[in-house]
Computed example of a mutant assay.
Amino acid sequence: MATQLIEPPELKRFDPRQRAAALMLALGQKYGSPIWDQLSTEEMKELSSSMAMLGRVPAAVVEHLLAQFAHDMTAMETCHGSFETTERLLAGIMPPDKVKEIMEDIRGPSGRTMWDKLSNVSESVLAGYLKNEYPQTIAVILSKLKSDHAARVLGVLPREISVDVVQRMLRMDTVQKEVLTQVEATLKTEFMANFARAQRRDPHETMAEIFNAMDRSTEETMLGALDQKAPESAERIRALMFTFEDLANLMPSAIAVIARQADKRQMALALKGAPEEIKSLFFSTMTERSAKLLREDMAGMGPVRARDCEEAQSDLVRLAKTLADTGEIVLVDPKSDDTMIM
């Protein structure tokens, strides 16, 4: 049974909304952005208003809120969340029309209309669904999307399908309202619901991403607190995190891609505080001249703050993840003998 965190006395004068505002201020833009991305416009407005009126928050309150947040996020495995349970909960605290509006929004990507929502779905995912539809249906859907997004979807669709769709779009007259209504209903029931279910994530993955973005001292403090309160969750988060030290597990070809695309000063700063194993790995992928210049840059920096080195190392990790997301490199999971594309 998890130990309850002890609340500081000062916490009592802050209501739930103020506590949420204080937490988001403490996380800041860098660490809080994954959470902001999940909020609706109205929620953002309410939270921002509370932040603006918050005033000074004692350090003990901030520390407690951060520890409670990490604890609560990793303890979510103890309950079962679904669209149905969420809808039942909301139905007990707000009017039916508001519940309907919120549930329609969270069942798919953000947007007020179906076409707004589709514009927030990646072209590869949308094309994967549309390629199994009739070309005329695809033409109707693409005609309602923004031109740049429709162009990207056409580029991903198989060539024979995309050519047929373009021809149908050229011959298309005004689409009848009944047809649009039917297409929207199909998208909502077949595509958006499945898309939302596929997008659901383990909260430990979300926390691992947040911890990855933290500076090392904050990360170690937070994980240390979780070790005491929820050791199994702390272990799962560590297993999901990809750290600077994990770069040592990458193939030399992947390191070479990172080295080519990294900001040279940031890479020099990151390697200045790196273990010799990682330094040698980076140098081994470079030409003799490039390695010599990098060593000179590192030597010319003189003494640097450990915090600056850690931030530069975090930048390299984020670059590695971005390159993996686009398929340019493959990351190796340090916890297994298999490779994974992230």
Rank of each mutant, 00 (worst) to 15 (best):
residue 2 A to W: 06
residue 9 P to K: 13
residue 23 L to S: 02
residue 25 L to H: 01
residue 31 Y to G: 05
residue 34 P to R: 05
residue 40 S to R: 09
residue 41 T to K: 08
residue 48 S to P: 00
residue 49 S to K: 11
residue 56 R to Y: 10
residue 67 A to D: 10
residue 68 Q to I: 00
residue 76 M to T: 02
residue 77 E to I: 03
residue 77 E to F: 14
residue 78 T to W: 05
residue 80 H to F: 08
residue 84 E to D: 11
residue 86 T to L: 14
residue 97 D to A: 10
residue 97 D to C: 04
residue 101 E to T: 06
residue 105 D to R: 14
residue 117 K to T: 07
residue 122 S to H: 13
residue 124 S to Y: 10
residue 129 Y to I: 07
residue 130 L to G: 05
residue 140 V to K: 02
residue 143 S to K: 13
residue 145 L to T: 01
residue 155 G to Q: 01
residue 156 V to H: 07
residue 167 Q to T: 04
residue 167 Q to F: 13
residue 171 R to K: 14
residue 172 M to D: 03
residue 174 T to S: 12
residue 177 K to C: 05
residue 178 E to I: 09
residue 189 T to S: 15
residue 191 F to Y: 11
residue 192 M to A: 12
residue 218 T to I: 06
residue 218 T to A: 15
residue 221 T to W: 14
residue 222 M to R: 09
residue 222 M to N: 08
residue 224 G to P: 15
residue 227 D to L: 12
residue 227 D to F: 15
residue 232 E to K: 15
residue 233 S to I: 09
residue 234 A to M: 13
residue 235 E to R: 14
residue 237 I to M: 07
residue 243 T to D: 06
residue 252 P to A: 10
residue 253 S to R: 15
residue 263 D to V: 05
residue 270 A to I: 09
residue 277 E to A: 12
residue 282 F to R: 05
residue 283 F to E: 07
residue 292 K to P: 05
residue 292 K to Y: 06
residue 307 R to I: 12
residue 309 C to G: 09
residue 328 E to F: 10
residue 331 L to G: 04
residue 334 P to T: 00
residue 339 T to R: 13
residue 341 I to H: 09
